[in-house]
Design a binder for these strands. Sequence first.
DNA 1: GGTCTCACG
DNA 2: ACGTACGTGAGACCC
Length: 892
Amino acid sequence: MSKLILIDGNSIAFRAFFALPLLSNSSGLHTNAVFGFTTMLLRLMDEQKPTHFLVAFDAGKVTFRHSEYKEYKGGRAKTPPELSEQFPLIRELLKAFSIPQYELAGYEADDIIGTLTRMADDQGMEVIVVSGDKDMLQLASDNVKIAITRKGISEVDLYDKNEIKEKYGLSPLQIIDLKGLMGDKSDNIPGVPGVGEKTAIKLLQEYGSVEEVLAHVGEITGKMGEKIAEHADNARMSKSLATIFREVPLEQTLEQLQYDGYDGQAVATLFRKLEFRSLIDKMDLSGGVSDELDAEQESLTWATAALKPDPAIDFEISLTDLVAALPKVQAIHVESIGDNPNAAELIGLSFYSEAQTFYLPVSLLLSNEATEIRKWLADDKIPKKLYDLHRSEIVMGWKGIEIKGVKSCILLAAYLLDPTETSHTLHSICSKYGVSGIRADEDIYGKGAKFILPQQAALSEHLCRKANVIYQLADILEKELEKNEMSQLYHDLELPLSTVLASMELKGIKVNKDELKKLGEQLAIKLDELIIQIHQHAGGEFNINSPKQMGEILFDRLKLPVYKKTKTGYSTNVEVLEWLESKHDIVKHILLYRQLAKLQSTYVEGLLKEIKPATGKIHTYFKQTIAATGRLSSQFPNLQNIPVRLEEGRKIRKVFVPHQTGWSILAADYSQIELRVLAHISQDENMMEAFHTNLDIHTKTAMDVFGVEASAVDSNMRRQAKAVNFGIVYGISDYGLSQNLDITRADAAKFIEQYFAVFQGVRRYMDDIVKQARQDGFVTTMLKRRRYLTDIAHSNFNLRSFAERTAMNTPIQGTAADIIKLAMVQMDERLRQEKLASRMLLQVHDELVFEVPLEEMEIMQRIVPEVMEHALELSVPMKVDVNSGASWYEAK
DNA sequence: GGTCTCACG
DNA sequence: ACGTACGTGAGACCC
C-alpha cells in the first residue's frame, strides 16, 4: 500500500531551530535547523518507509488570508537571520535526499498539504502529515494521521481521528471551530477574548460549531455569553482564517511525489560540507568512499584524501622485517587506554608507510629484540607524524622510551585550527576534514562498563588505520595552518611545548603525605564540631553537603528570607550566605563548614588519592588542547587551583615540597601580565606610561578615574579601581561591574565612562576588536592563535554580548598564554644550556614553579625572571616576582 | 549525567 | 529590551 508523507517545511525548520543550540560548522555557517530537519527526515524514512514524499514551504509573505485580515500573522517576531540563512541549506538537503519540495505563491504550506491530503485520501492512500502546528489536526481522517512535534523536535505525537476525539472530545473539523473561539496568538488570530481551550471545548461539545454557538448565544449565561455575542464577528473571521484551504490549484500530481530513496554519495557530500559527523557515522557513509569522486566532492578542499586506498596491513610481521621496514615509515600511532595519561595502559604502536602498515604490541616493543625500534623512535633526525604527541610521550616515558623527531601532531594542529571544537578525537578530525578509513574508538572498544579490547586482528587493523589517517591528515592540517599563518605557532611553540610538559609531568611534584594527613585530621576535628553546631541550630540532623536539604532548612524551617533562586530551588552559595550572615547564627557556621569541607574533600582527600605510593609524588596532566583561549588546564589532579586566598587553605601548599633534601621550591609569577598585554595591544598612552614608570596599576587607575593625587587614593578607591581593571580584561559591562562591586548599574556605568575617558586607547581597542571580530568571524592573539566567534552577529542579545566580551578578552588572555608558553620552552632550553639540575614542575597561568638545589638558587633567581620577562618583547616592560622557600607555601 | 558549589588565574 | 563578568576542574548530591 502507498504511504505519503507531507512535511510542513517552514514549521519544522522553525521548531528545529529553536529546539537545538545554535550549531555551526567551521566556516561559520549555522546548521542547527538543518541538523534537526535531517534527523527528522532520517527518522521518518526509517520508521515510516514512505512510498511518496513531499515537503511544502510557505511562498513569500502575503497569502490570500492577508486580504481577508491584514493583521494575519502580524506581531510575529522577524525570522532570525541565523534561521533564514539555513533555508537554502534545507532546500539543498532535500535535493540530496531526492525528496520533492513545493511552494506556490499566495498559499501557505498548510494549504498545499491540505489539498494533497484530500487528493490522497480520495485515492485511499495512507497519509502522514508532519508539522509543529496543531491546526493541522483538522486534516485527520481514517487514512490521514497527523504528527505534531513535541518538546522541540525529538519526539512527535501521532494523532489519528480517534486520538483527537479522545484528547479534545472533538472531531478533526471541529479543531477549526476551536481555533475560531480561542484564537491563536502566534498567528495573531483573535478569537473570543476570555475563551481559552477549556471553555471552547465545552462550548463545542455542547453546540458543535462556531455557528451553532453563536446561534444559541442567548442560552449562555453570565459574562461569557456577553463576550461571545460581542465578539461574534471575530469568532467567524477567526474560524475562517484557521480553515486550511484544500482546493489549491496544484501543478503537482500524486504520481510525481513517488519516492525511491536517495543517493548516498550526494548525501555524504552535503553532510561533510555541513560537518554532520555523527550522521555520517550513523549512515555508514564514511567507509563507502571509493575511487570515483564526483565533481561536487572535488570542490571540497581536502576530499582527495579520501582517495587513499586501504592500507595493506601486516600484523604477522617479524621483528626483523619490521626493522627493515622502518626507514620508510612516515606516521606512527601510540595506543593507550585510560583518561589519565600518567596512569594509562600502553597497548602498542602502529606504523604506516606507503608500502605496508604494521602493528607492534607493547610486549614486543619492550622486548630485548626491539632495541632498534626504540632507537628509531628516539632518533631526533627521523621525522615522524602522530596523533597526540603529549600523551604519547607520557605513556612511552613511563616505559622508559623516548619519542623524538615528531614534526606533526594531528591533535595539536586540529586544536590550533579550531580550539572551540567540542571534540578532537582522531575520528572526529577525520570526519571534519573529509578523510575516511577509521571507525570511532567507541565502536571498537565500547565504552564505560562495556569497554573491552578486541581480538588482536581487529585491534591491529584499527590501529593501523589510525596510523594511515594520521599520515593523510598531516598534510591537510598543515596546509590549513599555513593559510592561517599559524605554522610558527605550531612548529616553534606548541610542538616543543608538548615535550616540555611531558617531562614536567613525568617528573611530578613531591608531596609530604604525613603532613597532608595531619592537616586532614585537624580538619576532621573542626568539621565534626561544626556539624554538631549546625544541626543544633537547625533543630535536627540533615546533610549539610546537600544544597537541597540546606535550602529547606534555611528557608522553609528557619524562614530566612530568600535572596536568590537557582533553576531547581533555593540558592545557598557564598553570596547568599554572606547576605544572611547577620540574620541567623547558623549561617556563619555553615560558611566555615563549607570552606573546610571543600579543603577536606577536594584538597586533602583528593590529593592523597593522587600520590603515587612508590615515589610520594603527584603527576598532574596539563591539557594542551582544551582551553579556547590557548591556556593550559590541569587534571588528575588539578594543580592549578590549589588554595591561596585564605590562610586556612593556603596551608595546603605546605605539602608541596622539593623531591630532594637540601633543595627549595622557587615560584616566579608575572605581575599584571594581562594588563600589560592590554597596554601593548591597545597602545594606550596612559596605560603604557603607567607600566614604564612602574606605577601600581590599580592605584594609577584610581587616581585617573577619581581624579585625585596618589596620596589621596584610599584602600576602597584602589579596590574599586582594581575591579574596573578586572572588568576591562573580561570585556566590561556595567551590569557585571555593578554585581562585583555591589553598586548600582548607573554608578558602574559612570565608573566605566570615567575609565574610558582617561584610557581612550583601551576604548578604541575594545571597539575595534569587536568590529574586527564581526568582520572576520574570529579574533587572534599576538602569536596568531585564533578563536572563532560564531555568535558575534547573533540576533539574540545575550549570545551576541557574550561573543563580544569574548572578542575583547581572548586576545588578552590568549596572548598572556602565548607568553608564558614561550617562557616555558625557552626556560627548558636554558636549563639544558646552563647544565642546571633545577627542574620546572608546574605552570599556573601566570606562574612557574621550580625545584632548585641550593647551589643553583642564585643563578635561578637571576635566570628565571630574565627568561620570563623577555620571552616576548612588548612595548611595555614585563615584571616577574620571584620567591623561594622550603615548600610552595613559603615561596610566596 | 546534570546541577550546584567552589577552588584557582 | 536584554539580564553576564573571562578561562578552567573537581566533589557532592540526586535522578
